[in-house]
Design a protein around this nucleic acid. Structure first.
Lengths: 202, 202, 202, 202
DNA sequence: TATGAATGAGGGTTCATTCAT
DNA sequence: CATGAATGAACCCTCATTCAT
């Protein structure tokens, strides 16, 4: 009745092969230019198989985006210890720094996210997916602000500015060293973040 | 001149009709979802005519992007008078403010640029096109920094950070009031810009 | 008997579940638009199981048609007593009337037969299937004509005309009240049948 | 500007080729089993060309059905002269007779209509299409009944019974001589029609 | 027997591009 | 210059059928 272990394993392999193939192709050629034929060819499975695991191209992209984003946040927060865990500036800058390092070491992920992650897609995906275990970044940050001894005006705007700044500058710096490599850009970026945070402190 | 004035005029009209139609459609539906059929239909021109004026869809997009960008910069600098034209902070913030106002009053342009302008495309287009009369923003800014009594470290990085910050935040704020409308976001944005400039001052 | 009773019962259940599911689906969506996936899903049976009981979609349709047709004839003749069992007109009109009533009270069967029973299919099915116990309508009618005191010219044509008339008019009248509901159409139909019978009497 | 005569002629040829190919294939294999690939292959045009002339398979079927039906009615009424044009029985039987002759001489049309014309399709098509020049059978018959010296009860039911009887019996008789060839069936059929008409006379 | 994952041929449809007019 | 009919490759997706478990 129940499918055996072996079958289950094979299924996981197919799914994984499809995700990997899609990730590579979306990164190399972008989402729109990648056809389902391309994906199944690289994954070495039959065309119909794709539809056993994903509804369509958008579905597999969503899985990739949320998966990769979560992976980054997990890595960024893993084993981290703050000297002063209630210091918004320290926590934010440290997290930003770690995320920039992770991105800087994983060009494919940057390329993939840059080519596939627009705010529209991101927000929609986030809302569509209330998957268990999904990393709750917003909640974590809300707690941080609550515990902080310093109050911040318009914290939502603050975080919005910071995220957009990181996101928009990473792409060219990391992938094309334009205008300078991330190593060089990073201090300026963290400075700018500090500036934003301070200007919101009351 | 062999061809009569009338013919020349008609030619320009067709070209113009194609550009307008493409702009509307790229804005409404995005680049990928717009077909050449769509464009020629809206322009009320035969399909083959498209190929008399543009090589393909990418070509017409390039023309639109550079045209619109130039239009914005022209408008932003038109008739402007600075109290202290050598003050980098004043000039930059004023320009930024005017550009934000222009964008905020022209949603289609924001939508169009957001949907069609990635850095990759932009740089490539800029390089491909050495069109006469194209607005020399970089040159203007270089002069400003030269005349400034204050010196700035890594001015290129500074301008990069500012441009990316403006570009990335405008889209959601202007079109979706997310996280707040541009009216509200603007002071924070200008603050952040000031912060970036000051942290680069020596 | 090697296989236990329980197994036999389960087997019959699966077969039955498939037949029921197919009947419903063919009735609801028609034969062509129903996929084998649809059938096994509704029958709550694995895809492969279908092929243990039926060769393909055509095969299951055939079983349904002959089964349903037989069911109708059985019901129509069940417990019937004629005043004058040798009177062809009385017997025919009474049978026709009962069949019309049965159909009128069982819209799904009408819909199913209408959507799935063309003469071509019917005749082929009948010939292919020499299933035991199949109701011998033709034989019954031959006997009736033999016993009748009145002789009829071309009896086969006569019965052909009657069957076609009933079959073709039932669908629209019963399911769509078009041009009128069966209650209203019925007397006219029986009149027409009487007319056909009389014009064949010698 | 305007496409030339030659172009117009070629267009008509393509359209015609598609209609002919579709007619043959629908007749040979039925509607559902015929793919658009089949049609364009037989018509010897490219696949995309199909969509220049017809929206989909249903659209081309509709054109064929209405076209063929009109053709039959035109032929049946062409040059007809009645001794007593107000005699419902004479007119009806004469028309029926001519239609049966036409059908009997054009097996493909019978096969096509049998395989493609269900009442549902027919009524929907008729309603969808208020094309100019379409033969107005209903109007003609209404006039006939109005002029008739004899009154008829429920004339709509009467005509419904007659049409269904002709339609349902023609298929097997003409194409398969079952139960007898049309030549032989025809007198019985006309008799039955007469019977229906008389039983509706007041 | 029973399962359901896997297959891949084939369905309908779109569209950039060409070319005779 | 301008046209738009014609093309056919490529797209996404469905589904009957097989077969290892």
């Amino acid at each position: 009745m129940r499918s055996g272990e072996k079958t289950e394993k094979k299924k996981a392999e197919k799914r994984s092969a499809l995700l990997n193939a899609a990730f590579q192709l979306f990164t190399e050629q972008g989402f729109q230019k990648t056809s389902i034929s391309d994906i199944v060819n690289r994954a070495a499975v039959a065309k119909g198989t794709f539809y056993l695991y994903f509804k369509d191209k958008y579905h597999i992209r969503t899985h990739l985006i949320t998966g990769k984003a979560e992976q980054i946040f997990m890595k960024a927060t893993d084993g981290i210890i703050f000297e002063d865990p209630d210091n918004v500036e320290e926590v934010t800058v440290t997290l930003a720094s770690r995320i920039l390092d992770i991105l800087n070491e994983d060009h494919p992920i940057v390329s993939f996210l840059a080519k596939n992650l627009s705010w529209g897609v991101f927000k929609k995906d986030i809302e569509d997916q209330t998957e268990k275990g999904s990393f709750d970044f917003q909640g974590m940050y809300r707690d941080l602000l609550k515990r902080s001894p310093i109050r911040y005006r318009d914290p939502e705007i603050m975080i919005f500015l910071i995220i957009e700044l990181i996101g928009s500058t990473s792409y060219n710096s990391i992938l094309y060293n334009d205008p300078v490599p991330m190593n060089e850009l990073k201090p300026h970026l963290l400075d700018a973040i500090r500036g934003i945070i301070r200007s919101h402190a009351t």
